[in-house]
Design a protein around this nucleic acid. Sequence first.
DNA 1: CGGTCCCTTGATAAACATCAAATGCAGTGG
DNA 2: CCACTGCATTTGATGTTTATCAAGGGACCG
Lengths: 244, 244
Amino acid sequence: MHPNLTTLFDKLSLFSNLTPAEREELLETSRLQDFKKGTPIFHHGTPVSSFYIIADGAVRLYRETPEGKEITLTIAILGDMLGDHELFENKPTYQAHAVAAEDCLLLTYNSNWIKKKVQEHSSLTLNMLAAISKKGSRSTIDREQLVTMKTPQRIGCFLLHLCDVFNLNPKSFVLPYSKATIASKLGMEPESFSRALGKLKDIGVTVQGNNVSIADSSTLERFVCRSCSTAEDCKTCHIYQINR
Amino acid sequence: MHPNLTTLFDKLSLFSNLTPAEREELLETSRLQDFKKGTPIFHHGTPVSSFYIIADGAVRLYRETPEGKEITLTIAILGDMLGDHELFENKPTYQAHAVAAEDCLLLTYNSNWIKKKVQEHSSLTLNMLAAISKKGSRSTIDREQLVTMKTPQRIGCFLLHLCDVFNLNPKSFVLPYSKATIASKLGMEPESFSRALGKLKDIGVTVQGNNVSIADSSTLERFVCRSCSTAEDCKTCHIYQINR
DNA sequence: CGGTCCCTTGATAAACATCAAATGCAGTGG
DNA sequence: CCACTGCATTTGATGTTTATCAAGGGACCG
């Protein structure tokens, strides 16, 4: 049932370009852990002990305001890390709740051990810096989109991104998470999400249940990416691309 | 005019806990550069050459959407880095515009040189990871606040944060940037900023020109932090604090 | 004194949250 | 197979918030 660890390692950019010895050491120390959908992985405020890398499935990270409103920070997927902020900013406790949004498979490590390895191995150092920096860039973009994009555009961007990341056929694919989860990730209410989907019909996006069909990706891109300042460097966006 | 480099280094967490030799090497390679208010430091799309650390003043980072809307990513101040994302994510060009929001003093380094040093020196490795991770956490919080907080609350949070960072007396201080700049940083229009300041009068925040007076910080905190999921771990917020 | 820049104020419209209720759908047990 | 229940989603009605457009101060500077 568990995939071959070696194959898995090849897919993780965090572990790319390691020396055989480094790779071997990490392979030996890796433990795989299963989490069923809905299971908590750690809680906000709990002492930090483990560092995780997602091998399969998805994890939702969220926090709660004193007023009781729940806010989804991100949905982490294959290759994403959990517990990295806490580890490198020396936080004694987890800074968010983590719950399996789908059935999950997680690589787990002792926090302090992985921190030591990052210090020791210079290739791992740069991989980790790239990974953490990328995470930060992503949340900067998310923040920006809340300011510049309207609800239907944010959904459109999410859908295009989805196809890109999971290598789905835009003409017909299935939403990997519940609509409420997606709405929360996009910082909107489920009602607004539902209504915004309606507005996307004009752009050629049909949704029935969890089945999505994007008639023409570039039409959707034209609608979405015109309001995004990163369009030129976004690998999901093809129409404004200048680099590559 | 330029402050003593040694004194400056003591204030930079990125350079803390270095061995005397490492510190010496960095000191020798540091160059100080002046930028007058309004001067561009680098442009979005320009090839990456330098890595900067702010020694004094403030730098506004922003991007533009294809539609022509300008979006402020952040205002960087003492100790903050510029060009780090580009460096560690191997971007060939700068990912944003950087312009001096106030008269600035910047430590500058060759990008590739600093990257090599981070690889070589394990103390610098962890400092850099902490710094970049913190930056990411900050933008996650900014994103969250766009969702959970109303305009006056975001301004209140900004003001409290300001007092904390610059060690200002809440009873009476001067805004370090123009109102338009602050509005943009907070993701709102100048008009909304102006109106929201009015609403803060009820909470005891008086603004005349650039002079701000917060009658009672804890009253303002009660108004602001109840909508923030990080209040418990936020060093600016005292009323919900559990850690320390 | 006229001009520019920055900010404020006013009026209006769009977008979104909220509250409430209806619908649909999956699983359960009769 | 069918009613029944619980949960997720949709739809409707309404109010709040904020962007937008337009015009009005007020300070500073030539």
